[in-house]
């Protein structure tokens, strides 16, 4: 049972090691997160197979192929989902693929438009011709079912309310069979809806998923089954992807902080256990 604060004061150093004030822990974490942002730490990074698979899947799309990028995330998970969005868009535009971006989240729609506009400028992408933003779309299930059958009918207007029908980027796109890949960048379990409602409708469709790190383990079974072609796992995945597309973005810069935070957690667990073992040995 959880102990009530203040009811059992630690006696000696070994007891104290087991009950460090949480405020001390928080200050330590704050320091190890902030420090590397000012003093960059660059360490060698190995690309995980899940990230590599996503990269390869994008590489295998023929030039001029059509990719839908869904950005179901909001400000809360910006630290992880923003670098993921930027990394995947950089790759898609670098490969000169046609890109359609939209979001099931209102904030995600705004964020992804800002990111896509910036990346599009870098790669000379023209809005309406090379890429389009379909804006915020509520009720995911209905949109997904609808886009399987009729993409222009599902996204009749872009985020500014302009008709998409005559945009060059929409030419030749009728239904899901004309789409080469879908990449979902999300902070939720929306990948299950894509798998259940869309992915199987086009056997050649590649579905990539970019979840927050905490969500990644639960998606592994779907990568094994081939329903997800590759996964970009949180900020670490984004940093690996940035490395693959030869760019240094937010994720690469943040890896120093993440590394140190992990080390801090492990050290604290060790410290707590040292106190615990010594106390137990004394008592026995």
């Amino acid at each position: 049972m959880a102990t009530t604060p203040g009811t059992s004061a630690p006696r000696d150093i070994w007891d104290r090691l087991q009950a460090i004030d949480r405020r001390v822990l928080y200050v330590l974490l704050l320091v190890v997160i902030i420090l590397p942002l000012f003093v960059p730490i660059r360490l060698p990074m190995v690309t995980m197979p899940s990230t590599q698979k996503l990269y390869q899947a994008v590489e295998s799309i023929p030039e001029g192929g059509y990719v839908i990028v869904s950005t179901t995330w909001s400000g809360g998970t910006r630290a992880e989902n923003m670098p993921q969005t930027e990394a995947i868009l950089r790759h898609l535009m670098k490969r000169r693929l046609r890109v359609a971006v939209f979001s099931f989240d209102q904030q995600g729609s705004q964020f992804s438009y800002n990111i896509a506009s910036r990346v599009a400028r870098d790669f000379g992408y023209e809005y309406g011709k090379d890429w389009v933003h379909w804006g915020f779309r509520p009720v995911a299930g209905v949109v997904m079912k609808s886009l399987v059958r009729d993409i222009p009918g599902t996204f009749t207007t872009d985020r500014d309310g302009k008709p998409t029908k005559d945009m060059p980027v929409m030419q030749g796109i009728k239904d899901i069979k004309d789409v080469d890949a879908i990449v979902e960048i999300a902070a939720s379990g929306i990948y299950m809806d894509w798998i259940g409602l869309v992915v199987g409708a086009n056997p050649k469709l590649k579905f990539g998923f970019c979840p927050t790190a905490v969500m990644a383990p639960e998606t592994y079974p779907y990568m094994d089954s081939g329903q997800i072609v590759g996964i970009m796992e949180g900020m670490r995945g984004a940093a690996e992807y940035e490395q693959l597309v030869n760019t240094v973005g937010l994720a690469t810069k943040g890896m120093g902080s993440i590394s140190l935070a992990h080390v801090l957690i492990m050290l604290l667990i060790i410290v707590g256990n040292v106190g615990y073992i010594v106390t137990r040995a004394r008592r026995s």
């Binding site: 822990l25 707590g272 256990n273």
Partner: peptide, 19 residues
């Protein structure tokens, strides 16, 4: 609010992982 989780992970794991 989301970043608070990082702090809570530190305190929860420090407390929970005892051998």
């Amino acid at each position: 609010m989301f970043s608070l989780i990082a702090f809570y992970i530190v305190s929860a794991s420090y407390r929970a992982f005892r051998i």
